[in-house]
Structures are given as structure tokens and as C-alpha cells.
């Protein structure tokens, strides 16, 4: 029983961090209708920027995180302007291919600039382990998950309660209708990519402080897909639920099945879960079914 609860708690905490990863992806899907295959690489870039700026600023986390966010806003906007805007009336597939190309470039360039050794990221969170009734929680992970939740909540509020957030949702619902009402859809797209850049910097920091920063960090991007397809590619609440589900499944598989099969099952478990969900609910658990009226 203790093992079960321990795995559950680990799964939920790590799942919240997956949700944070997925948030950047959801922002772009909602705000510009593009499926961004480069989300993991944006997080990688954000993580490196934080790590490098930490070194340069004498380990000042606020300067490093703020600086990384600012740079990532620019990166996001440049991607939107330079790569996606010229493709705006092209088929969705072209846009998707373009994001794959962006990801590949980032993955290639980052080690060229910063090398491949793992950099640790100073955590501002208290270190050490807490224990409640036999269940142990690493403090940095606990705090990271708490801040990730706050961050996700803030974006959910932004979407529901602000003029820009509503306009972003309108654009993802019907681009031409938004234009007909005077919404500047290009500006909205740029904002979506900019905010996604901020999210990537924050995610890079949070994940980096848990795992360290090295070129493999970009690989967590692959987990965006089970998370967002479980939750629906354009739902923030869905990202949270999807993230936690993936975290729990992965944790349980690691705790119970890996010892039996000799390891590695935790890596495929989220993808198996994804397959099952797709068979039952092809639009994801929270995703928009195209609303049909009869």
C-alpha cells in the first residue's frame, strides 16, 4: 500500500510537470491552430538559456529566468514571423513540417554552441526530502509542481478572462470570422508564439532544476503527444489531466512492471495508454468534438 501511494504521489507531481510542458503546446494550438512539433526543443533552448544566464549572473535565478523568458519571447515571435507567417494559407501539413524543421535546427545548434555536458540548474526551492507516513517527497519536485500549477492556472485565467485570451480562442475556432470582426489574426499568432516561448523558458527551468540541462532534455517533447492527445490539443484543463494521467501511468509501470520485465516498460506505458484512449475517444478526453447539431 505504501508503495502504491508513493508511486501515486510521484506520478501526480511529475505529471504536473508534464502538464507544464504541454501548456506551451496548447497555447500555440489554441492561439494559432498549429501543431507544434518543436515544443521539446523550445524547452531545451529555454533550459540552456536559464543555465547559461545563471552562470553569467552569479546564480541569480530571477535575472536568469527573466532573461531567458525575454529571449524566448523573441525566439517565438521570430519563428512565427519568419517561418509560419509566410505559410499562413498553406495546408496544415506544411506548417507541421516547418515546426519539425525548427525543432531539428534547435537540436542541432544547441550542442554546437553550448556543448553536450550536463549543466545543473540551481534551484531556489528548499532541498531535502519530506516524509509523511512513509511517503517520501523530494522538496524541489514538490515546489516545482506547485509553481507549475500556479503558472498553468494563470494561463487558464488569461484565456477565459482577458481580451487577448478570448481573441486567441476565437482565432483557433474560426480565423476568417475573427478577421471579419477586426481581430488582427497575425498579431494574435505572434502573441501565441511569444507566450509559448515564455512557457518554454519556465518549463526549461523547472525541468532543468529536476533533471539537469543537457541535449537530452529536448526528448521530453515526445511526451507532449500522449499528454495532449489524452487531454485534447487545445484544452488547458485537459493538459493538466492528461499530464497527471501520463505521470501516474508511467510511475506505476515503473514501480510494478519494470522489475518484472527487467525495466523500460515505464517508457512505453504512456504511449500504450494513448493508444487505448484514442480507440475509445478519438478527440481526447477533453478535446473539442466538432459540435454537431441536428
Amino acid at each position: 500500500m505504501t508503495l502504491f501511494l508513493q508511486l501515486l504521489v510521484n506520478g501526480v507531481l511529475i505529471g504536473i510537470l508534464y502538464a507544464l510542458l504541454a501548456l506551451g503546446f496548447v497555447l500555440i494550438a489554441k492561439g494559432s491552430g498549429v501543431i507544434n512539433f518543436a515544443q521539446g526543443e523550445l524547452v531545451l533552448l529555454g533550459g540552456y538559456l536559464v543555465a547559461v544566464l545563471l552562470g553569467a549572473s552569479g546564480e541569480n535565478v530571477f535575472v536568469a529566468l527573466g532573461g531567458a523568458m525575454a529571449v524566448m519571447v523573441i525566439v517565438g515571435v521570430v519563428i512565427e514571423r519568419g517561418v509560419l507567417r509566410p505559410l499562413v494559407n498553406e495546408p496544415l501539413l506544411s506548417l507541421v513540417m516547418a515546426t519539425i524543421a525548427i525543432g531539428t535546427v534547435i537540436r542541432g545548434v544547441v550542442p554546437l554552441i553550448w556543448g553536450t555536458s550536463t549543466r545543473s540548474v540551481t534551484t531556489v526551492f528548499p532541498t531535502g526530502t519530506l516524509e509523511f507516513g512513509g511517503i517520501r517527497v523530494q522538496q524541489p519536485v514538490l515546489w516545482a509542481a506547485a509553481f507549475a500549477l500556479l503558472f498553468i492556472g494563470a494561463f487558464a485565467m488569461f484565456f477565459m478572462r482577458s481580451r487577448m485570451g478570448l481573441a486567441m480562442q476565437a482565432v483557433s475556432d474560426d480565423r476568417i470570422a475573427s478577421q471579419s470582426l477586426g481581430v488582427d489574426t497575425r498579431r494574435i499568432n505572434a502573441i501565441a508564439w511569444g507566450t509559448s516561448g515564455v512557457t518554454a523558458a519556465f518549463t526549461g527551468y523547472v525541468w532543468g532544476s529536476v533533471l539537469g540541462v543537457d541535449p537530452l532534455l529536448g526528448m521530453i517533447g515526445i511526451l507532449v503527444f500522449p499528454v495532449v492527445i489524452l487531454g485534447g490539443i487545445d484544452s488547458i484543463a485537459g493538459a493538466l489531466v492528461g499530464g497527471v494521467a501520463v505521470g501516474i501511468v508511467e510511475g506505476m509501470a515503473g514501480g510494478y512492471l519494470d522489475p518484472i520485465v527487467g525495466g523500460g516498460f515505464s517508457l512505453v506505458a504512456p504511449l500504450l495508454l494513448l493508444l487505448i484512449v484514442l480507440m475509445v475517444r478519438p478527440y481526447g478526453l477533453f478535446g473539442r468534438r466538432e459540435i454537431e447539431r441536428v
Binding site: D173, I176, S180
Partner: peptide, 10 residues
Amino acid sequence: LEGRRVFEHL
């Protein structure tokens, strides 16, 4: 626009 084009999910 023709066909109403409301934002269905809002």
C-alpha cells in the same frame, strides 16, 4: 459572413 460562423466553442 454567410453561414453564421459563430465561435462554436465560446
